[in-house]
Simulated scan of single mutants.
Amino acid sequence: MTSEEITAAAAGTWQLGDLTVNRIGFGAMRLTQNGAALTTDAVASDRDRAVRVLRRAVELGVNHIDTAAFYFSALRSANELINRALAPYPDDLVITTKVGPGRDPSGEWLPLARPEQLRGQVEENLRQLGRDHLDVVNLRVHGTDSIAERFGALAQLRDAGLIRHLGISNVRPEHLAEAEAIAPVVCVQNRYGIGAPPDADEFLRTCGERGVAFVPFFAIAGAGREAGAGHTDHDEVQAVADAHGASAAQVRLAWTLHRGPHVLAIPGTGDPDHLVANVAAGALRLTPDELARLDAVHRHV
């Protein structure tokens, strides 16, 4: 089977509350501009190509798209690209967005939203996406402060019908416990990949034990973060990739998915070929020996 024939279904599925998603999804952050993402000086992306990438993702079985109203450049908004490309939306498409951070029209970051400001952010996502409700909203967190007030505000919006399910992003285990005392949490979205610290492994396992999806960001980019992956990779990662006729990026995604059935992937790209390769990574089956070698890299990067 060629990469072009592999669909997101090859990775298996997970439940976000009552919503079934394929474990390979799509992150919309890189759609809005070329080069480093979420900066004020990056070059705007090609609108038509971004639309084609989104439509191709759905054709390849992607039914989980991660976005945010603060994913925009001078000329592009990820939410509005999603709206243009995919509305009217397929019945099985789950769009996950984030609230908490905000950016002014020039792209500069604003202070985290106060609890009373979160409704405005939710409504902005609704407007941009052309939806009457949001499937999943993640409260994006910075630091160690309590999230009870802000998560409680989102729980009220869920009760009002504006949000179907809630998640949290960039959090610590104590945040998950705090949120679950207020309302059900369907996902935790945290930075994770080969080389993540041991406490991240422990948190991933905790989420699995609680039936909460763990959704890594920067699983491919690693230390490159918003700038993306570098051109070279660890020798062991490259060796496993060569053995499968795959790329190092595909091996990193596959390794992440092997960490547990509750782990979802949301690799992002504005390149149609990279999209096909990312989806195909969901079909990559690593052997126990290969997993052991990659685990050793993971522990010692």
Rank of each mutant, 00 (worst) to 15 (best):
S3F: 12
S3I: 06
T7A: 09
A9E: 15
G17S: 08
L19A: 15
R23N: 06
R23W: 07
G27M: 00
M29W: 13
M29V: 13
M29T: 12
R30C: 02
R30E: 05
L31Y: 10
N34P: 04
A36T: 15
A36D: 13
A36F: 01
L38F: 09
L38H: 09
V43H: 13
A50H: 00
A50P: 00
L60W: 01
L60P: 00
N63T: 15
I65A: 06
A68P: 01
Y71M: 02
F72G: 03
S73L: 02
L81F: 12
R84Y: 04
A85W: 07
A85K: 07
P88M: 08
D91W: 00
D92M: 08
L93M: 06
I95F: 08
T96V: 14
T97H: 10
V99D: 01
R103Q: 11
S106F: 05
S106G: 13
S106H: 04
E108R: 11
P115K: 08
G120S: 13
Q121D: 13
Q121N: 09
Q121H: 13
E123H: 04
E123L: 12
L129A: 01
G130R: 04
G130C: 07
D132F: 03
D132I: 03
D135W: 06
V136A: 09
V137M: 09
R140G: 03
T144P: 01
D145R: 14
G152A: 11
A153T: 07
L157K: 01
R158Y: 05
D159M: 04
D159V: 11
L176C: 00
C187K: 06
V188Q: 00
N190A: 04
R191A: 15
G195P: 02
A196M: 01
A196N: 01
D199A: 14
D199G: 02
E202V: 12
E209N: 05
A213S: 15
A213W: 02
P216Y: 06
F218K: 08
F218V: 08
A219N: 10
R225T: 11
A229T: 04
G230V: 03
H231C: 05
T232H: 12
D233R: 01
Q238L: 15
A239V: 00
V240W: 13
H244T: 10
H244Q: 13
A246N: 08
S247R: 06
Q250H: 11
V251W: 02
R252E: 11
R252A: 13
T256M: 09
H258Y: 09
P267K: 09
G270E: 01
G270L: 07
G270M: 10
L275I: 10
V276K: 05
V276S: 05
A281Y: 01
T287P: 10
A292H: 11
D295S: 11
D295C: 06
D295K: 04
D295A: 14
V297K: 07
V301H: 14
V301L: 15
